[in-house]
């Protein structure tokens, strides 16, 4: 049984080599078996040699946190990429031009409010926003949606209500501050944004002839998932590094000063990369901090964090991700300080 399988695999590999050889020349053909061999041998050797190191308590904790972030985010990333694939394949561009106001200045607030409809966390919103741009939605509106969706959908607001029982002002403040940030960022993009910061949208829909919509959906879905998944792993690794390297006891140092604690929790939201459906519980547990600081944590977290920056860099390009994330942090901190100051 196994030998037949092996033979089949061998045959397929040989066949494939012929294909790649014809496509890419003899150099490629040579490197291929080596590559496969390396794929097996190198991790095995690394695991063997670094076994002791990987099993040290710190590395174990790092691996657990890294895997936890990835596993937690995968279903939502899958949902987001499936939705984005579906938008590309099944929803005609005219739907969006009919629903959204023609003038970008007005389209931004509408798209921001439309974030309510995407139930999930921030990983889902990046591919969806990308596909919206691909369908001709003005980038400013797509970005307003990207920022608001993970923060104001019903799932997240319910979680916030559960985490802060008896404090409806907290839910209202979170909703408002997130919306305002999304709108301001959309308008900022209209005012200052440049198209060249955005990587041109790569579409895998080049062959409409003969290709069914289902296939278009499937290939788009698959490509987006694999792409975003790789960047998700980068983000998870970065978040795990901070999680393990910076002990929580550092928190207490900053909880004294009002302004420092707001800035500090904003920074913490970025490096911890907690999923937006859970960040309310984390914020509730940071009881040493002022309510405004905790609000900032919940407004910044779903919009900017390490795994999101990695995902955005992968989807829209690095030039965009850095500028956009930096601006978003500033706007989000200001708006939560203002709205938190008034409401809380």
């Amino acid at each position: 049984m196994q030998s037949t399988e092996e033979r089949a695999v061998e045959a397929e590999t040989a066949d494939l080599e012929r294909v790649t050889g014809a496509e890419a020349g003899p150099g490629r053909r040579r490197s291929r078996p080596l590559l496969v061999l390396g794929m097996v041998l190198v991790p095995a050797a690394v695991l063997y040699l670094a076994g002791g190191w990987l099993d040290s308590p710190a590395m174990k904790a790092w691996r657990t946190v890294c895997l936890a972030v990835t596993v937690q985010a995968l279903p939502f990333l899958l949902l987001g990429t499936a939705l984005s694939g579906a938008i590309n394949a099944f929803v005609p561009a005219r739907v969006f031009s009919r629903v959204l106001p023609r003038r970008p200045v007005l389209a931004v607030p509408v798209a921001g409010v439309a974030g309510v409809v995407l139930p999930g966390c921030e990983c889902a919103s990046v591919p969806v926003a990308n596909s919206l741009i691909g369908r001709g939605v003005t980038p400013a509106a797509a970005f307003a949606f990207l920022l608001s969706a993970p923060a104001i959908n019903p799932v997240v607001l319910t979680a916030t209500a559960v985490a802060f029982p008896g404090q409806p002002a907290m839910i209202a403040a979170r909703l408002l501050a997130s919306l305002v940030t999304a709108w301001v960022m959309g308008w900022l993009w209209l005012w200052l944004g440049r198209a060249e910061w955005l990587r041109p949208v790569v579409r895998h829909t080049g062959h409409e002839t003969g290709a069914g919509r289902w296939r278009e959906f499937r290939t788009g879905f698959q490509y987006d998932f694999l792409h975003a998944g790789g960047f998700l792993v980068v983000g998870a690794m970065a978040a795990a590094t901070f999680n393990v390297a910076v002990p929580r006891s550092v928190l207490d140092v900053f909880s004294g000063s009002a302004w420092l604690s707001v800035l500090f929790l904003a920074g913490l939201a970025i490096v911890l990369a907690v999923c937006s459906e859970a960040d309310a519980f984390v914020a509730a547990s940071l009881s040493g901090f002022s309510t405004v600081a905790r609000l900032t944590f919940m407004v910044v977290g779903p919009m900017v964090d390490l795994k999101l920056i990695a995902l955005q860099a992968g989807t829209f390009g690095r030039a965009f991700a850095i500028r956009f994330s930096a601006a978003t942090v500033v706007v989000a901190v200001l708006s939560s300080a203002l709205i938190g100051g008034v409401l809380l």
Partner: peptide
């Protein structure tokens, strides 16, 4: 196959490079 792949379908074979990292988890 090379005719087909070399034409316009290379998007499919040349998948995203970052995807390698998914192998780790």
């Amino acid at each position: 196959p090379h005719h087909h792949d070399g034409g316009h379908g290379h998007d499919h074979t040349g998948g995203p490079r970052a995807a390698w990292l998914l192998l780790v988890p």
